[in-house]
Nucleic acid binder design. Structure first.
Lengths: 342, 342
DNA sequence: GACAGTTTTTAAAACGATACCAAAACGACT
DNA sequence: AGTCGTTTTGGTATCGTTTTAAAAACTGTC
């Protein structure tokens, strides 16, 4: 182990005071001669500033936190990547906490981040109470909430997708193609996004004068297994189309439909949400409402930076609602029906 | 903003000295009476220790760094998730740097992490020189190298997949099914994993007495586009099977094969590497060598923790080589040929 | 009730950087 | 050369915690 080299050794080596070294590091005015001496010493000793010490003194860590439920899910991966890229440009680093589907763990993760003196937090929420987030946000560590609302949020910025509208569009698409017995597999309804999507589905059915059948609504967790189970408990209702709340559910649904001897989309159409890329690859290619993950990440990062840089000003909290995009592929049967009509 | 509450305020509130508070925080011996007073004060003031200050004093950050080239890639997502889970159990946190495909950025990321006083680093390398990593590793910050070797690594622990053998098995599988004109789309050959896979391919061809044709070897970057381009410049050789170095390349290959009016696997079989899940979903389901991402992440984390906890002992560097697993699905045509034979 | 031995407690010195302030150096102009 | 104004420089306090070493408070024994 090389003995730790601090600013003091550098100062000695360069024959200057520590404050001069500090000034060089922070690009403040130093005579060219001394600057060169310092830079030379830094290189010679292979000195790296201790950011912990710097942050302790300046009370600025240049770290932002990102709390996500599942890092393997490329939706969150994309958010993380996009947010990280924005932050990096401003000299911030990203620390990611992977919490799973527990609100307490999300809260713990945020608390730890505060202890680590992060300058701000982005929370990909899975629902639950906003108390902890509110408190942290008040205590000078701005929080941006992503994807799901929390109960009783106060003055928190947020970046959401217009889930009601997304689900409405998707269901509407099915209605317009001519499906009449449209079922839905929702995510856990304690999540606002799941609830909102259900609302969009309901509204679309109503607007297209289709009877709503509560038994055509199945709540599931976001797994392939969940999709399969939902479908198998749904088949007796003879749906002609299914709205799945995300890709995993859609994949599970397709699998189970086929296992039961039916075809997608000929017997039952399937449409989904979420990830753009994967939907393209599966069989049949999935018609989806594509979530703008990159845009979400970027928007969240920018909102956060704005808060951090203007911490003394009181800006009213902002809610950004981003649109999802309908991507029509084969699984909804649109192109086939089109062929028949023409 | 609530004024920052420090250990001093807590001490005052509880009517004790700061060291007593510190002792409570660190579970050292304190009389029950004072302990209760301190805990009460902590709750009342909503005190959270400043980990920057603690780390500065103790010279232990309880943070590990993970450097990855692409967080959107679920292979790395899985590694990150698995490693994070192991570290969390030991009270460590994970800070992730997403660097893209540039070795300098990987080095920069590691340097920054050192500045941030991480206790250790896991590097999902993309090749290049080991100088920076060697230096950091010597300077008391252990590094575990993952997935790709670096040039001139000294005393670095590593976790690798047996790429030669993987590629060999995959190619062998194609040979045994009966393919004779087997092409390969490799990744960038400056990466050891890509080179090793090529080696495995070569050996398999040799062992099965197939002529090696250099023009059947195409180097590509790891993109869908890359896969398509490679195939289009390969078709004139009339391959009957293609080994693709990862999923993206495989998907691109399949797309291009179809665009050119051929069928997979009937006209040209395709097999790939990497991700287990996605391969299952695409059309046709992909025969792959599945990379044990979770195991890689866990192994790396454990190696790192071992180094961190035994920093004074000199343990010789370890290289863990994990096996990949052949998963046979439709894209290699095995089941079809089987049907024909039976 | 005093003494030795043990435990609990505290005040003060770190850790490595920056910020503040006063001293030193510089330059230009009488 | 002396004065004034500006820029550059270095000494020192400080950030919030742990650690160290020494004082204080117990404990039990004679």
């Amino acid at each position: 182990m090389a003995s730790k080299v601090t600013i003091i050794e550098v100062a000695k080596e360069a024959g200057v005071g520590t404050s001069t070294v500090s000034r060089v590091l922070n690009a403040q005015s130093v005579s060219n001669e001394k600057r060169q001496a310092v830079l030379h010493a830094i290189r010679k000793l292979n000195y790296r500033p201790n950011l912990m010490a710097r942050n302790l003194r300046t009370n600025v860590s240049k770290i932002c936190g990102l709390v996500i439920p599942d890092i393997c899910n490329s939706f969150f991966g994309q958010i993380a990547g996009a947010a990280g890229a924005i932050l990096e440009k401003q000299g911030y680093e990203l620390i990611i906490a992977n919490t799973g589907q527990k609100t307490e763990k999300q809260n713990d993760a945020m608390q730890t981040m505060v202890s680590r003196q992060v300058d701000g937090i982005m929370l990909c929420a899975i629902g639950g109470k906003a108390d902890v987030a509110n408190q942290i946000n008040k205590d000078d560590c701005p929080i941006v909430v992503i994807d799901n609302k929390l109960e009783r949020m106060e003055d928190l910025d947020s970046v959401m997708v217009d889930n009601v509208k997304s689900a409405y569009s998707l269901t509407e698409h099915l209605c317009m193609i001519g499906y009449r017995r449209i079922a839905i597999i929702t995510g856990p309804l304690e999540q606002s996004s799941a609830l909102e999507r259900l609302t969009g589905y309901r509204r679309a059915l109503a607007d297209y004068n289709l009877q709503l059948d509560e038994e055509m609504i199945k709540e599931a967790d976001f797994t392939i297994r969940g999709g399969r189970d939902a479908v198998s408990s749904l088949l007796y209702k003879k749906p002609d189309a299914i709205v799945a709340a995300n890709n995993h559910l859609a994949i599970g649904a397709i699998t189970e439909i086929r296992k039961s001897g039916f075809e997608v989309p000929d017997d039952i159409a399937v449409v989904g949400f979420d990830d753009t890329e994967v939907g393209e690859l599966i069989d049949p290619p999935l018609t989806i409402m594509s979530q703008p993950a990159v845009e979400i990440g970027e928007t969240a990062a920018r909102l956060l930076l704005h808060r951090i840089c203007n911490e003394n000003e009181t800006i009213p909290s902002q809610e950004r609602v981003l649109p999802a995009r309908l991507i029509v592929r084969s699984s909804c049967g649109f192109y086939k029906k089109l062929g028949q009509i023409v």
